[in-house]
Amino acid sequence: MKTSSSRRSLLAAVAVVAIGSVFGLATEAWAGYPDRPVTLIVPYQAGGSTETLARVFAKALGDQLGQPVIVKTRPGGGGAVGSTEIAASAPDGYTIMLSGSDPLTWTPLTLKVEYDVDSFTYVAQISEYQQAIVVRQDSPDTSFEDLLARSKQQAGLTYADQNAMSRAFLEYIAGKEGIEWTGIPTKGGGEMVPLLLAGKIDFAWSGGIHGRYGGQIRVLASMNAERLAASPDAPSIREKYDISMPGHMLIVGPRGLAGDVVARLNMAIEAAVKDPGYLDLLENKLLFPSKFVGSEALTEDMEATISSLRTVAQVAH
């Protein structure tokens, strides 16, 4: 027969062991991920700036997660093919995607695809495309207002867009202002720049490539929610029309990703974006700003963005 003190200590010991093992198990689940390599899908062509960035980022992230992160390119449909794949992947955290936001948001709103705007879990944002309305340096328009005024006098000014979303946004603006613009589709900045510099078009939508051209290309307005850091004098379209184009470069997983996996990824990504090699590449060489937004804030942001997009999409169709 045990004495009461030893019974107490026995109970205490059992309690400690019990509680300890519960915590231990939780830490097991936490520490369990990742226990094998993680695949990072990039839905763009190999060799493009996003894909190159992804590779450097993957290395930094892999260092943080303790498991290699392997880049898998799945281009096609402006990001739709990769998005279809991630939406269909198992939500276990071993398949994630790095992409811009338009294949995740605009594409399902306007085209028939096998996924929807809520097929994804938003894990983090790591950068932002510097989207803008630009003109060449010797254009008569020195400000966005100039452009609007000239458009009212002269119908049918031409511009270049690079995807369906940019076209829709510019048409939305034109609609709100009661002016008529003619859009010429181009496949990327590389096609837009010669058209703009040669004077064949009056203005253009840029996804950030204008940053390489210094004084030769002037920014009239920012298409992002905020003014662009490099062009603080150019107003954001949100100031005038209360809409903005999502320019997020973000990491997503399939819908239903477990909370602790998301948290683990958040921690790792937040640390990875501070990696000096990655930062040097991102900011100094690829000329993207580093911008980290965690999962919760990002999910809220994306919900607001998607409703804003629905507005524009409805007008467009």
């Binding site: 062509q45 190999a46 060799g47 493009g48 700036s49 894909e51 190159t52 590389g190 096609e191 720049v193 010669p194 510099l197 390489r212 051209y213 210094g214 590449l281 100094n284 060489k285 690829l286 000329l287």
Partner: peptide
Amino acid sequence: IGIPGNIAAALLIGAFMIHGIVPG
């Protein structure tokens, strides 16, 4: 001018950028 003539050149542009040479 910093614009690619074809896909291979576009890849080279990416390579230039990674090494700190901004095409343009």
